[in-house]
């Protein structure tokens, strides 16, 4: 079985240049539906879900592999390998920006350049010099919140009380809902995203990179954007006058315009 079947790969449009879009923590490839119309007419756009997210297979999920961003980078590289991609443009959001960085270091030939939407190399504060925005207590609160909401959504206490693995019925019920996943998977991803500190990898990056920074973003402040820009060689920083962490959903026209200008300047 091609590994891509595991990652629910969707291919839209066609064109000489392939763009891979990698969703962030929380949701799935549906996040890109506001942005894809700007590229589909003249590009091949590849979407996928990380293992355990959206409609990707959960059977291959294991906590150990996906407890660091390396596991997710392997998903991205598997998708690239199955489609035999070379010199693709990677458009990534949130934690995927760092997953893309890891994947790009492991197999540089897959990518031509990267456009990172709301990147942060480290969400946790690392005193005294680095202010990622969050403390460990915030992470614990978020993980608890994910449990609480899962229980609320699922409206199905059996597996929670008994601790049995989630049956396929329950998984099917949840998969119909955008942004909802098995709590173990979602929490593992959240923990991997929050515990990651990839600041040391930034100087090793090899691809031209566009950093799309939101003017006000609780997850990636402007100071974090400037930090990333200062440490990532061959990067350019574009600040979008917006609030929030989902520029590709809230400001797709502006994001598309900036990515297209970047692509034109970096043929």
């Amino acid at each position: 079985m091609p590994r891509t079947e595991n990652n629910n790969v969707t291919i839209l449009g066609s064109g000489p240049q392939t763009i891979v879009m990698a969703h962030g923590f929380g949701c799935d490839q549906n996040m890109w539906r506001f942005l894809t119309p700007y590229f589909v007419p003249d590009h091949r756009v590849v979407l996928f879900d990380y293992t355990g997210c959206g409609k990707a297979a959960t059977t291959r999920f294991n906590v150990q592999k996906y407890s660091t961003l390396d596991g997710y980078a392997q998903d991205l590289l598997d998708v690239c390998a199955d489609l035999d991609l070379r010199d693709a443009i990677l458009v990534s959001h949130s934690v995927s920006t760092m997953i893309g960085l890891v994947a790009g270091l492991q197999d540089p030939s897959r990518f031509h350049s990267m456009a990172m939407v709301c990147p942060s190399p480290c969400l946790m504060n690392q005193p005294p010099d680095y202010h990622g925005g969050f403390d460990r207590a915030d992470l614990e609160e978020l993980l608890a919140m994910m449990d609480q909401n899962y229980i609320g959504w699922a409206n199905y206490l059996g597996p929670v009380v008994t601790g049995l693995p989630n049956g396929t019925d329950l998984a099917a019920e949840l998969s119909g809902s955008f942004c909802s996943t098995d709590p173990i998977i979602a929490k593992t991803f959240a923990r991997a995203a929050f515990m990651a500190d990839l600041r040391h990898l930034l100087p090793r990056a090899r691809h031209p990179t566009l950093l799309l920074q939101s003017a006000t973003d609780a997850l990636a402040s402007q100071a974090v954007g400037e930090y990333t820009h200062a440490h990532l060689p061959d990067s350019q920083l574009a600040v979008v006058d917006a609030t929030g962490h989902c520029l590709h959903m809230t400001h797709p026209a502006e994001v598309a315009r900036l990515i297209r200008a970047f692509m034109a300047a970096r043929p």
Partner: peptide, 10 residues
């Protein structure tokens, strides 16, 4: 802060 993440990601 955790709820801000929750708001932004969900």
């Amino acid at each position: 802060p955790a709820s801000r993440v929750f708001y932004d990601t969900y």
